[in-house]
Amino acid sequence: MTRWPHVSLWLGCLALTGCGDEPGRQPNAVATRTSPAPTPAPTATEAAQESIMRPSVVETPTPTPPPAPEPVNATVLFDSNDAALTDAARASLDEVLGRIAAMAGPVTIRGHTDSRGNDEANKRMSEKRAEAVRDYLVEHGVAAARVTTIGLGEDRPVAPNATLQGKDDEAGRQRNRRVHIVAEPAEAAVPAAQPSDGQK
């Protein structure tokens, strides 16, 4: 008589154990959550396509233009009372002929004398010296249309013609017996008839 209460209790526990189970589900089964698959890393092509820098907006460096050529400045010296080119004068012209031709712009030739003689004679001598230099340049390939000659006589010395004692300064006179040449780049305008060798 004492076993029945225990049997009844055991049967009741069995009944309670299966009451909440769903059909097809095993009792006491533990539910699991499936994790999403990892995202693959982008390929190199995909990464390049996603770049914010498009080829159409990439700045390219601007090339630096070459510096503009400097004008040619040359001086040719002459013997006293003479408009003929000396060997030294021809050598000086030969040194700058290539640069003058490369300029392709206007060429201005200014003739000068020392102070010996009268003004009119010196003016004419300075013109002859400028013309002698022009002829040499033209003979060696410089277009005559580019060249302008100017005779300034004794008005623009670059050195003293006499010493403080009133004697002739032959070294100074030699420097004043000259022709000054200026050859400009192609875009330069034809200069006015003004001296350009530092004299005013």
Rank of each mutant, 00 (worst) to 15 (best):
R134K: 15
R178P: 03
I150A: 07
T32A: 15
A183G: 01
V30M: 13
R134Y: 05
V138D: 00
I150G: 01
N161A: 07
F78E: 02
T75Y: 03
W4P: 02
W4R: 12
A102E: 14
A91V: 14
Q49H: 11
P55R: 06
G111W: 08
A183V: 01
N28S: 13
H140Q: 09
R54S: 14
T86F: 10
Q194E: 15
C19Y: 14
P106G: 09
L14M: 12
N118I: 04
M1S: 13
V30I: 14
R110W: 11
D169V: 06
H112C: 11
E187C: 14
N28T: 11
E22V: 14
G24C: 06
I109C: 00
N122K: 08
I100C: 01
T148V: 08
L14S: 07
V107F: 00
L9G: 09
A159M: 07
P71V: 06
A15V: 13
P157R: 03
G12T: 13
V57D: 12
V7P: 05
Q174W: 08
V30G: 11
G166I: 02
R90L: 00
T34V: 15
L93I: 07
E70S: 12
R177K: 07
A186Y: 00
T108F: 05
T62E: 12
D21N: 11
L16S: 04
G151T: 00
I181P: 00
N28A: 15
E95S: 13
R116G: 10
P38C: 06
S35L: 12
R25K: 12
A192P: 02
I109A: 00
T64Q: 13
A91W: 09
A104Y: 12
A121L: 07
C13K: 13
G24Y: 05
Q194C: 11
R177Q: 03
G141N: 01
T163R: 01
N81H: 15
V147I: 14
K200E: 14
R177P: 01
R3P: 12
T149K: 02
A104S: 15
R175A: 13
M53Y: 15
P23Y: 07
I52A: 10
A183K: 00
E187S: 14
A31P: 15
S56F: 07
P185V: 02
V72K: 01
A159V: 08
V147T: 10
P69L: 02
H112P: 00
G153L: 00
P71K: 05
A31V: 15
G198F: 06
T163M: 08
P63C: 05
P38M: 09
R116K: 15
A171W: 05
T64R: 12
E184T: 04
R54V: 06
G98H: 04
G141Y: 04
A186D: 02
M53F: 14
P55H: 03
P42E: 06
R129A: 04
R129M: 01
P66V: 04
P67K: 04
R54I: 10
A144N: 09
L137R: 01
G166M: 08
R90S: 02
P160F: 03
N176H: 05
T60R: 14
M125G: 03
A47F: 05
P185F: 01
S35A: 14
D169E: 04
V147W: 02
L137P: 01
M125F: 06
L152C: 09
W10H: 12
P71Y: 05
E131C: 02
V72H: 07
G141A: 03
K200Y: 15
P23R: 10
R33A: 12
G117S: 08
C19K: 13
F78P: 02
G151V: 02
